[in-house]
Design a binder for these strands. Structure first.
Length: 226
DNA sequence: CCAGACGTTGTT
DNA sequence: GTCTGG
DNA sequence: CCAGACGTTGTT
DNA sequence: GTCTGG
């Protein structure tokens, strides 16, 4: 699963890697949690890449009352093409989620140990996402997104069965281009990141509280066992 | 056909 | 114990 | 995911 | 809106 992540790279670095046309500032985030507004990159009306802020937690368009619907923060890559909640978004509304790393937990309730997972040499990564547009009967609108998950690669398997799909820059165009209206080619991009490319470090339990959004939550806890 | 669900994860 | 909010 | 709340009524 | 279960 992927249910918390971080994006601390400066906006100009994000824009350079993701190549969107519009410009937007955003503060460094050390502890991004579901239900919060997050930055995504998608194709705009003229096919140009754009940065948008949407809510993390996908609400399918047929939902009557979003307040009584458990938002979908992840979508299984293996089945997203057949699930009513994701099928249309996988065809028409794919996006990238800029991140510097993501978090997973080990341990039992009451002793939850968070771990930061990021590229061995640092830097930005792109999580594969789906976004959705919800229209209320009263005219209210809501844009939301979910992060795709796949099976864990070798490093991740040590702590967790699943991991978010991470795309490389050479895959960005094919993933973002939804003009064909088909999902099968895009689905083929959804594999685990190759082994030996990520590093996992235990971090401060301060991370557990989503209200703690400051650099110290990423403090390395070297003595902590996996 | 209509009614009712539509999701993931981890844990039990 | 279970749901909601972040 | 984890943390934190978990309720109703009437009044401002 | 679309799929599944009855």
């Amino acid at each position: 699963m992927c249910s918390r992540y971080t994006l601390t790279s400066p906006p100009e670095a994000v824009r350079t890697l993701f190549g969107y046309a519009n410009d937007a500032g955003f503060p460094p985030r050390y502890n991004i949690a579901p239900s919060q507004p997050v930055a995504i990159v998608r194709h705009g009306l003229r096919g140009q890449r754009e940065l948008a802020l949407v809510r993390w937690g996908l609400i399918p368009p047929w939902v009557k009352d979003p307040m009584n619907f458990a938002m979908l923060i992840n979508a299984r890559a293996e089945t997203a093409d057949v699930k009513p909640s994701f099928r249309s978004a996988l065809r028409h509304r794919r996006c990238l989620v800029p991140a510097d790393g993501f978090y997973e937990w080990t341990g039992r309730a009451g002793a939850k140990q968070p771990h930061l997972i990021k590229p061995k040499n640092g830097g930005l990564i792109a999580l594969a996402g789906l976004w959705e547009h919800w229209l209320g009967a009263d005219g209210s609108e809501l844009e939301t997104m979910a992060i795709l998950t796949t099976t864990a690669n070798a490093e991740m398997a040590a702590i967790h069965e699943r991991m978010p799909v991470i795309l490389t820059p050479d895959q960005f165009d094919e993933w973002l281009d939804c003009r064909s209206g088909r999902s099968q080619e895009a689905k083929k991009l959804l594999s685990p990141l190759p082994d030996r490319s990520l590093e996992i470090t235990p971090v401060s339990k301060d991370l557990n509280n989503p209200r703690n959004d400051f650099p110290e939550v990423q403090r390395n806890m070297p003595d902590t066992l996996l």
